[in-house]
Design a protein around this nucleic acid. Structure first.
Ligand SMILES: NC(=O)c1ccc[n+]([C@@H]2O[C@H](COP(=O)([O-])OP(=O)(O)OC[C@H]3O[C@@H](n4cnc5c(N)ncnc54)[C@H](O)[C@@H]3O)[C@@H](O)[C@H]2O)c1
Ligand SMILES: NC(=O)c1ccc[n+]([C@@H]2O[C@H](COP(=O)([O-])OP(=O)(O)OC[C@H]3O[C@@H](n4cnc5c(N)ncnc54)[C@H](O)[C@@H]3O)[C@@H](O)[C@H]2O)c1
Lengths: 210, 210
DNA sequence: CAATAATTGTGAACTTAGTCACAATTATTA
DNA sequence: TAATAATTGTGACTAAGTTCACAATTATTG
């Protein structure tokens, strides 16, 4: 293990995959697992898994494999899901509502604690247990609650403005669904759905010619 | 330009970004653009753009830049959005509905022509202009319509079964929202939203220690 | 308890992706 | 028309990421 290293992004994404896979194994009652088995479930090489984990320490037992429960706990700490994250959603439209209704996020320790929208006709309505608040109430809300992550689910043209507001409030990270590059120093994860469609179209177009 | 090459995935994704950026420039009435300008809008290096484009040909004019309208057309052909793609959605839940209601997909040439669900209480209801059909009707539907792309928006445990069904119907590509690795030979694009949250959590956790 | 089998952790080798730097080209200016 | 400025396209280089291959370790078997 090398200390204090910058961890490559692909490694980070795979850690999430390993975590998910290990939880399935745990639910299946499996106690020990070899990198080879995780690899075959995820369709990658076992050496990749071992190398990825080696950035953070030695978690396995030679000749045996990894203790599932133990490795889950280690990954929780590494990824940062050993604690709950407070999340707000900006934009109570299609995507915003889908996220609020999605139980998977809470299960993974991402707690949606507020939904905000600029459209006064939506304010006061409920999505699940949450009441949509007007965006002007965000500032007040941020004083009373620790918000760590914000989701941008507003139209493209509002995204940059919202980002700057969020930056002022001291939000620590953004998940952005708007198809636009945000100018900010906060860490941003882009979820670019139409880009995925286009990438797929490209691949399909090349299927024959390979 | 090198013929017949395998195009790296990151290049393909960026093509989509360039395409989007160029359309914005076009709407702004800009006729010619330099790689440097696109680069600064997207926060990447200009050499990256030129190298990416060079996989497919020479589209610029030295000393001048790229003709916006022309490059858009070239990218349309390269990516494959010079034609319309027929898309169906499997699973008329949160994500499925969000996609059907999203005008951006149609604008990018992805036409949703059908929505299917296993829940009979949803069948017959409308999302936008589309009526939710029962999944058992899919086979018949596929005989009457050319379906190129399917979106998997069903719960994790149904995703693999659905995939196998889609494979039988000869669908050419899948956009998968379920958090599970699909075993199939069809090209798949994964949209893994909780993974994005976890990646963000990791990054936030490291912000201080860098 | 020695031999065998399984499996990790990790440097080294390899492969893929990104950047640099500059000749070639085009347009503009004097 | 010669000099200047801007910008492309790309080969050479550098960096990042993946896979290999094997010593080290652990458990199991005869
Ligand atoms: N729906 C999809 O499937 C989909 C797919 C890909 C990308 N996206 C992107 O995700 C974003 C949201 O899409 P959607 O379909 O949910 O849109 P939507 O129109 O359903 O919802 C957007 C919401 O944001 C609100 N809003 C607008 N400006 C605001 C502001 N300044 N502050 C707070 N709220 C504001 C609107 O009132 C609306 O309720 C868009 O950028 C879209 O391009 C959506
Ligand atoms: N909603 C989100 O924000 C979100 C975020 C990340 C991932 N996802 C994933 O996307 C998928 C869909 O999520 P959702 O929130 O839309 O779920 P949902 O429960 O709202 O919708 C799923 C729909 O699929 C239908 N369905 C179940 N089995 C089916 C089958 N065999 N054939 C056809 N239809 C079937 C259900 O009747 C339901 O209508 C899930 O795998 C989920 O994990 C969703």
């Amino acid at each position: 293990m090398k200390e204090d290293q910058k961890i490559p992004n692909p490694v980070v994404r795979r850690l999430g995959l390993y975590y998910r896979c290990l939880n399935k194994l745990y639910d299946e009652g499996i106690e020990y697992v070899a990198s080879k088995d995780i690899a075959s479930r995820l369709g990658i090489k076992s050496s990749q898994i071992r190398k990825d984990l080696s950035y953070f320490g030695e978690f396995g037992k030679r000749g045996v494999g990894y203790n599932v429960e133990n490795l889950i706990k280690k990954l929780e700490t590494i990824i940062g899901v050993d604690k709950n994250w407070n999340v707000i959603i900006i934009g109570a439209g299609n995507i915003g509502s889908a996220l609020v209704n999605y139980p998977g996020l809470k299960k993974e320790k991402f707690n949606i604690i507020g939904v905000f929208d600029a459209d006064r006709s939506k304010v006061g309505k409920k999505i699940g247990k949450l009441t949509i608040q007007h965006i002007s109430q965000l500032h007040e809300f941020a004083k009373k609650n620790i918000i760590e992550i914000a989701v941008i689910a507003v139209p493209e043209n509002a995204a940059q403005m919202v980002t700057e507001e969020l930056e002022k409030l001291g939000i620590k990270g953004i998940v952005n669904f708007a198809p636009v590059k945000l100018r900010t120093n906060i860490p941003v994860e882009e979820v670019d759905i139409t880009l995925s469609f286009k990438t797929l179209a490209f691949k399909i177009g090349r299927e024959g010619s390979r």
